[in-house]
Design a protein around this nucleic acid. Structure first.
Length: 682
RNA sequence: GGGGCCGUAGCUCAGUGGUUAGAGCAGGGGACUCAUAAUCCCUUGGUCGGGGGUUCGAAUCCCUCCGGCCCUACCA
């Protein structure tokens, strides 16, 4: 087989928080693929870096009273340590805040300029006068201009789903300082992606680079209409690279982040005497990006557009995976399922997680679930019970003699398992690790009955059976080694230990095709501890931090959204006067009728009484939290002088007060006994 | 509202037109005692979400309904 040259990247983790088990899905997935390719004898390099720029880093450094450089250096150290702990072996781990990156950004920028893709125009954006920064949409919160839901981010409302400009928010608040932002005009630079429309359609739809569902998504969401200009600059102050021909403006973090793949490659090239253009401008190199589905957009439209414009090699494949859930739910800090890499490592062996993820991963972008019972069962039953057991029950019988000089008759077991190698390799190649693991475990399921039938422990009792004993153990250990080779991309430690046990390192996939004979066998040492459910529980307990602060960041390589504290989620609004407060007329209301709105996802139609004949119709977005039956007769608080709002299902004449994040988490305000409908709340 | 994915044994899944639908784990019974209470043998368990259709033949193809998840939304 011709040696392929393959460059693999995983998304750059943002330098604003530690690595958690959600991130690890991707880094492990890519690491397995890289190790597999290396084992197959291909030249493959695994490239990553910290994503260090953006407002979030700047603000955080300021809050902590230190420089951004100091902050990102510390974070990088933590990330590197976490990755090492999980046997994730990057060939180079760089930083987007590097000279190499600045230089490459400039190079690509000049290419975009020279091709006439850059335009400039003024943008009105909210500015935080206290923090002295412009505010990205997600750093502004306020009341949705459409449905009046409070606490919405600056780009869209998760209550009614409408999109708007941050400047349209009612009572906007900066999440940095709590200050009221002001609208300022500022010159921004844009990439006219529309000029690349035909290219991007062709590239995304040709069927080679993307999963089919991703190609369909892009076609349906973006490529079916003119592509919008991409705002690629941010005004000072901004932690990042200043745009050389546009002083006072900085490249948006999402411009320099993917270029970080190249900058990190360049560092690797410099260390290994390789030519950078040989990797990024060579038709012979395959480039594979592993990313999460949250950053699809950047890697499948902007990034190919940038590469194309600057004459670099386009990605061979963008391999997109889903999010991690734990126990079928989003990772949760309060439930202890938001597990940091370090916390995991304090309690459990990384091999378990690598194997578990491998059994769950497929080429598709389905979310994968970490079920803790299944996690323990898989590690124990498959790895310890089936695989390692083969070695631990046979190695000591050949400690003195070593393996037999000729491979004995094993009824075709080794040959059959060798023949399965191609199919297993094909599964790895296409990212179908779940299938690869199933195939390997089928082999393991055939190996143990052999040992059982041959009963080496009986043969060991009679010296006359010495040769037979050696033969049986030679078979058992070779079958074990074969499994260890097939599992080596997933379990590098097991492969290494196997090499030590049999005095022959595992170096190549092809080692699985030929039995090992005549070599000495070392003392057997435990290779993998059984998972104790108590350790799993302790890890969850250690992760349970209801007061944990929510890291804020611009969209980075997050693999799972976090659950956060109410106050940081929705900071206090700007101060108001008692006159401001009095503008809102809050009244006690009694719900006299409640009806489901079948066509609506969230709405319940309420008829409330304000006493006497005064009634109002209110549509409340509480369907997922309350049934109509639960509501009738309740006393609630109504914002009674709110302008009527025409909705799809009728006109809403007020709002019922409730807290909570929405969905099932809505909590109506109730009133103590004695209050009467119509009374004002002061 | 639109789009996508999914629904097979208690659990996790395999099986995408062809003999009585499979595996692992869990459950039940037995064996063994070399091995990390690991292993081995036997075994219980499924109108393949419901209904309709195409076909000599459907878990598999088509239609429809139900349920779940995800994305997106006056535009796919």
């Amino acid at each position: 087989m011709a040696q392929r040259r393959i460059l693999v990247t995983a998304a750059l983790p943002y330098a604003n928080g530690p690595i958690h088990i959600g991130h690890l899905v991707e880094y492990i997935q890519a690491d397995i693929w890289v190790r597999f390719q290396k084992l197959r004898g291909h030249q493959c390099i695994y490239i990553c870096a910290d994503d260090t720029h953006g407002t979030a880093i700047m603000i955080r450094a300021r809050q902590e009273g230190r420089s951004e450089i100091d902050l990102i250096a510390e974070m990088q150290q933590a990330h590197v340590r976490d990755f090492e702990g999980f046997d994730i072996a990057f060939d180079n781990y760089g930083s987007t805040n590097s000279d190499e990156n600045r230089q490459l950004c400039g190079e690509i920028w000049r290419a975009l300029r020279s091709r006439g893709l850059i335009v400039e125009r003024d943008v009105e954006q909210l500015y935080d006068p206290e923090a002295g920064t412009f505010l990205a949409d997600r750093f502004v919160k306020g009341t949705c201009p459409k449905c009046k839901a409070p606490g919405q981010y600056g780009d869209n409302c998760d209550k009614c789903g409408s999109t708007y400009r941050a400047a349209d928010l009612i009572d906007p608040v900066s999440t940095h300082s709590g200050a009221r932002p002001e609208l300022r005009s500022q010159r921004h630079l844009f990439v006219q992606l529309q000029q690349l429309h035909d290219f991007l359609t062709e590239w995304t739809q040709c069927g080679e680079h993307l999963q089919e569902e991703v190609a369909n998504y892009l076609q349906g969401h973006f490529l079916n209409e003119p592509l919008r200009d991409w705002d690629i600059s941010r005004p000072a102050p901004y932690f990042g690279f200043e745009i050389p021909d546009s002083p006072g403006n900085y490249w948006y973090v999402w411009f320099d982040a993917p270029i970080g793949y190249m900058a990190s490659t360049r560092q690797w090239c410099d260390r290994h005497g390789e030519d950078f253009d040989d990797w990024w401008r060579s038709p012979d190199v395959e480039i594979h990006h592993f990313i999460g589905k949250d950053i699809t957009y950047f890697h499948t439209l902007f990034w190919p557009g940038m590469l194309k414009s600057a004459g670099f090699t386009l990605p061979t494949k963008v391999r997109i995976h889903g999010f991690l859930t734990v126990g079928g739910e989003k990772m949760s800090k309060s439930k202890g399922t938001f597990v940091m890499a370090q916390t995991y490592l304090q309690h459990l062996d990384p091999s378990y997680l690598r194997y578990y993820y491998a059994t769950k991963l497929s080429p598709r972008l389905d979310d994968i679930d970490l079920n803790l019972d299944e996690f323990a069962a898989k590690a124990n039953a498959d790895l310890v019970g089936k695989v390692v057991n083969l070695a631990s029950r046979s190695a000591k019988f050949v400690r003195a003699t070593g393996l037999a000089a000729r491979y004995p008759d094993d009824g075709g077991l080794f040959q059959r398992a060798a023949a399965a190698g191609d199919e297993i390799a094909a599964a790895y190649e296409e990212g179908d690790y779940g299938r690869a693991m199933r195939l390997i475990m089928e082999l393991a399921d055939r190996a143990n009955p052999y040992v059982e039938a041959a009963a080496p422990w009986n043969l060991a009792k009679d010296p006359r059976h010495a040769q037979e004993l050696q033969d049986v153990c030679t078979v058992a250990l070779n079958l074990f080694r074969q499994l260890a080779i097939y599992l080596a991309p997933v379990l590098p430690r097991l492969a290494q230990q196997t090499g030590v046990l049999l005095n022959k390192p595992i170096e190549h996939w092809a080692d699985s095709q030929t039995p090992l004979v005549g070599t000495p066998v070392a003392q057997f040492h435990h290779m993998l501890k059984r998972v104790d459910r108590k350790d799993v529980d302790a890890m969850i307990e250690d992760s349970r931090t209801p007061s944990a602060e929510e890291p804020v960041g611009e969209p980075a390589a997050e693999s799972a959204p976090a659950i956060s504290q109410p106050l940081s989620d929705e900071p206090l609004a700007a101060e108001c006067t008692i006159d401001d407060f009095a503008k809102v007329d809050l009244r006690i209301a009694r719900i006299i009728a409640a009806a489901d709105v079948p066509e609506a996802n969230k709405l319940v139609k309420l008829t409330v009484s304000l006493g006497g004949d005064e009634q109002r119709t209110v549509f409340a977005g509480i369907k997922q939290a309350y049934t109509p039956e639960q509501l009738v007769g309740r006393y609630v608080v109504l914002a009674a002088n709110l302008a009527p709002r025409k909705m799809k299902f009728g006109t809403s004449e007020g709002m019922i007060l409730a807290s909570g994040s929405g969905g099932q988490h809505v909590f109506l305000l109730t009133v103590d006994d004695g209050a009467e409908p119509g009374q004002r709340v002061h």
